[in-house]
Computed example of a mutant assay.
Amino acid sequence: MSDLLGKKRGRELRDARPAWREEPRTVTRVAKATAMVLAVAMVLVPLWLVIATSLAPGQQIVDNGGWAFWPDTWTFGAYDTVLSNQVTTRALFVSLGVAVLGTFLSLTCTVLLAYALARPGVVGGKPVMLLILFTFLFPPGIIPTYLVVHGLGMIDTYWALFVPVLVNVFNLVVVRGFFQGIPEELYEAARLDGAGELRTLFTIVLPLSKAVIAVVGLFYAVGYWNDFFRGVMFLNDTSMYPLQTVLRGYVTQGEGLGSEFSAEGSLAQAPQAIKMAVVVIATIPILCVYPFIQRYFTKGVLTGAIKS
């Protein structure tokens, strides 16, 4: 009986609010719920307008002034026009290639550098870390970046789309902090077993770092996928443009799909549907990847940030 009373008392103590936290009032709860609903609506309503406009017939879009909240008839004509265009499909494959290769190279360089800087006693580790943090506080401008890329002969090459930003300082600090949080006993056990640094990294450190690597990989992938500025800055050949650069040119200037683009029927009078279709196509890959990474998101970022 005493054991049951003790367990009950323990649960009450765990569930009890601290003295400095008052019981939330009804008005507070309603205000929080209202704020949450408004925040969700501010995200979902514009997203739905984009999707609905891309699926609406052209005449409805024209009648509504360039948008549609609910299509009278659902049509995929805008998507067919966009995906049948060679400029858009080529730009889509360019973006996929840059995102995949850039993310792989960035993760490789970030993990190797973070591991080296996380180990104590590395020769020159502290000066290198200070130099890296200096570039984070004082990033280079556009003109110096362009001059460096031009001097390396990477203008009008795909290398210019990811080499200048191969390692992100924030991601490096997060991964380094995560590596520093791994118990030192594991490193010592690996050394006693005769493992070198690379073997320790691949057999012990990386399997324990899936969360932070998944999150940092998502950061890199989203950054490469959404980037349009480097395409404008470093590429003179429009046939090499990634999807986001094509999207920017078409949405902001009504250009970008090239002379090969032609819409038939009502879509010819409503280019807004095609613009929205391009936006949806450019957003889908990230929406497909994010649910698989989301469960690692909070754990990976917070652990790396706190340990650093």
Rank of each mutant, 00 (worst) to 15 (best):
G194S: 13
T34G: 08
L112A: 05
L287H: 15
I274D: 02
G217Q: 01
L13I: 15
G125S: 03
P71E: 08
M1Y: 06
L101Y: 04
V174R: 12
R17A: 10
V169L: 01
Q244C: 12
A277W: 15
L5Y: 13
P140F: 05
Q294T: 01
G125Y: 03
W48H: 04
A41Y: 02
A282W: 02
P120V: 12
L38W: 09
L107S: 02
V251R: 03
A211N: 00
V98K: 00
A31D: 09
V37R: 01
L117N: 03
H150P: 02
I132Q: 09
T157K: 12
T135I: 14
T28E: 01
A39N: 05
N236D: 06
R90H: 10
I155E: 08
P120F: 06
K32V: 09
K299E: 05
V251A: 07
Y250Q: 14
L206C: 11
A263H: 07
L130Q: 14
N226I: 00
A116E: 08
F178A: 13
G124R: 06
Q272N: 05
L208M: 15
P183S: 11
S262H: 07
R119V: 10
L201V: 08
L47T: 13
T89K: 04
V215Q: 09
S209V: 01
A68M: 07
A189L: 15
R248F: 06
T73C: 05
R21M: 10
M240G: 05
W48F: 04
E260P: 03
S2M: 12
Y115I: 00
V45G: 06
L201R: 12
F162T: 08
V45W: 03
R90Y: 06
T34R: 02
L192W: 13
I182Q: 00
A305D: 04
G153Y: 15
G249R: 15
L198V: 10
I204M: 14
E12M: 10
L5M: 11
A195D: 04
F261A: 02
G254L: 12
I155Y: 10
G196D: 10
W67C: 10
L302Q: 10
V123Q: 13
Y187S: 06
